[in-house]
């Protein structure tokens, strides 16, 4: 089995955090999303990460931090959103180029998966495609995802609809699936017409008569697609705590989730649900529900619900 992680999206909704950084490399509670995913993949499964040329340097730097030797980063030669191959297109291109004939563990790089990958792989029998699904509990929210309707056995997928206008279920695809080698030709064929529709592979498999199984989990899952989702994920993982070097904060009150990046310093401030990336300097500020990118300098400023671009300097 090989693992393939899709990390080539341009993540426009998280601008400016994704101005010079791919979304999978966004730190979540101090650890890049991609690192969390890769660390979850068992060591016997080689990992391929697919990204685009716009973020090549960032991924090279990330690769250098990873001790695991079997990580291959492949670069799609696109620098604009309009040029990209599409997520499924990138997988298909890789399959065709490498002649892969093993099962595929397909992961989307901007998802946080709270379950144990070993449990997921244990549920995979090697012959039937398996997707991981999470119940959102809200049918309306499910519109933004691929929705899954199960058979009475609670395991077999009866139907799959990608981003339906009227979802029949609040059970959604979470960007983690295991595909047997026999299904790869269908994936490649489907990618020709729908290069950006990863979830559509399951619709195609079901239409072609394949059985598809569902691994339903209740642990946390986050699709980090927006500022609100990023903050929500941080709060869920960190809780009411401070992550980072607490000694770098002086005369500061914290509430909710606070994440302090490397070499960031805070003094005389009040922080509530704040994520500071690296080398930030915050003095005499009141920040709430904010994400502050690298190298920001804030002094005497009150902010709420803001994402700050790297290098922002705000002094009263």
């Amino acid at each position: 089995m090989r693992a393939f992680i899709l990390a080539g999206g341009f993540a426009t909704r998280l601008w400016p955090l994704t101005e010079k950084r791919a979304k999978p490399l966004l730190p979540l509670a101090g650890v890049p999303l991609l690192t969390r995913l890769v660390d979850a993949v068992p060591p016997h499964i080689p990992v391929t990460v697919s990204t685009n040329a716009a973020f090549a340097d960032g991924f090279a730097a990330w690769r250098a931090t990873m001790r695991r030797p079997d990580i291959d980063v492949i670069i799609e030669q696109t620098v604009h959103e309009g040029e990209k191959l599409g997520a499924l297109g990138a997988v298909a291109q890789w399959i065709a180029a490498t002649g892969v004939d093993e099962g595929l563990l397909l992961l989307t790089g901007d998802n946080y998966l709270g379950f144990r990958m070993d449990d997921f792989l244990a549920a995979y029998d090697g012959n039937v495609p398996l997707l991981a699904a999470h119940d959102l509990g809200d049918v309306a929210r499910a519109r933004a995802f691929g929705t899954v309707v199960l058979d009475a056995d609670g395991r077999s997928v009866r139907s799959f609809e990608e981003k339906p206008a009227k979802p029949k279920s609040s059970l959604v695809n979470t960007g983690c699936s295991a595909l047997p080698a026999k299904t790869l030709p269908l994936l490649v064929e489907h990618a020709r017409k729908h290069p950006d529709n990863v979830g559509g592979v399951f619709e195609a498999l079901l239409a072609a008569g394949w059985a598809v199984h569902c691994f339903q989990f209740h642990e946390p899952w986050f699709d980090i697609g927006s500022f609100d989702a990023y903050l929500e994920a941080t709060r869920a993982l960190v809780g009411d705590a401070v992550v980072g070097d607490a000694s770098a904060m002086t005369g500061t009150t914290c509430a909710g989730s606070v994440v302090l990046g490397n070499a960031s310093r805070v003094s005389g401030s009040s922080l509530r649900n704040v994520v500071l990336f690296e080398r930030c300097s915050v003095e005499d500020c009141v920040l709430e529900d904010c994400v502050v990118d690298d190298d920001c300098v804030l002094k005497g400023i009150d902010l709420r619900g803001k994402m700050l671009r790297a290098g922002t300097v705000l002094r009263d």
């Binding site: 341009f10 601008w15 400016p16 101005e19 902010l303 700050l308 671009r309 705000l314």
Partner: peptide, 28 residues
């Protein structure tokens, strides 16, 4: 979209920017 901001500034040699929408991004 906004992720093309830096590239657009360079490509068109922009000297002025006027914000007509997305007030939440004014600081950035």
């Amino acid at each position: 979209k906004l992720n093309a901001l830096e590239e657009t500034i360079r490509r068109f040699h922009i000297t002025h920017l006027v914000q007509c929408d997305q007030l939440e991004q004014s600081i950035n």
